[in-house]
Design a protein around this nucleic acid. Structure first.
Length: 188
DNA sequence: CGGACAGTCCACG
DNA sequence: CGTGGACTGTCCG
């Protein structure tokens, strides 16, 4: 089947990266972009369509607003998983299903838990690295909580370079896993 | 205790 | 197909 077209919504956010681009289809949210102005395939790309359904726009923006304000722990939005397939999707779904708000999992543990890798026991580092690739290619950041995946000896990485890591810190601080710092401008 | 290193998985060009 | 990455346990100095 040729998937339903993605329609884009711009959602205000207190993240250091600025507003989010949220791509929706009839099935649910299919994509989230931290840099909607430059993201290839994002809302600014040629041919991209904006979502004009005010009701849907309000629903999506409202959920994110509450989450960012610390008033909501689950986004509770239906997801359209079509942009991830195979082992990639299996790992993302395992993360979505098993790692709740305020908790984290290591790259290696997620690799093991997902069952997507044969050689995990022999070379845990390789599977962990593969999981890193999959997180970097997560089409649904925030909703599929790739920010809750950390390295065994630290925070690990995040897309978007230095600013990306700031986003990861911001989200983990919001969820209470990191202690607030001086540059923290969120709730609490 | 900190740094280098090999391992051979996956996404993307 | 080749390349490089959001890792990790082990091994040196």
């Amino acid at each position: 089947m040729t998937g339903a077209p993605i329609e884009w919504i711009t959602v205000p956010s207190p993240l250091p990266s600025g507003p989010l681009g949220v791509g929706v289809t009839g099935l649910g949210v299919a994509a989230v972009s931290f840099s909607p102005d430059v993201d290839p395939g994002g809302p600014a790309a040629p041919g991209a369509v904006r979502c004009t359904d005010r009701r849907r726009v309000a629903a999506v923006a409202g959920r994110f607003e509450e989450y960012f304000a610390g008033a909501r722990r689950e986004l509770d939005l239906p997801l359209d998983w079509r942009l991830a397939t195979g082992p990639h999707r299996l790992v993302l779904e395992t993360l979505y299903r098993t790692v709740p708000y305020g908790e984290t999992v290591t790259y290696g543990r997620l690799a093991q838990r997902s069952g997507a890798f044969d050689q995990v026991a022999q070379s845990p580092g390789l599977a962990a690295r593969a999981v890193g690739s999959m997180m970097a290619a997560n089409p649904l950041p925030v909703l599929v909580p790739c920010h809750r995946v950390v390295a065994s000896d630290g925070l690990g990485g995040f897309g978007g370079g230095r600013i990306g890591l700031d986003v990861k810190r911001w989200l983990l601080t919001l969820e209470g896993w990191l202690a607030p710092t001086l540059d923290w401008d969120g709730p609490g």
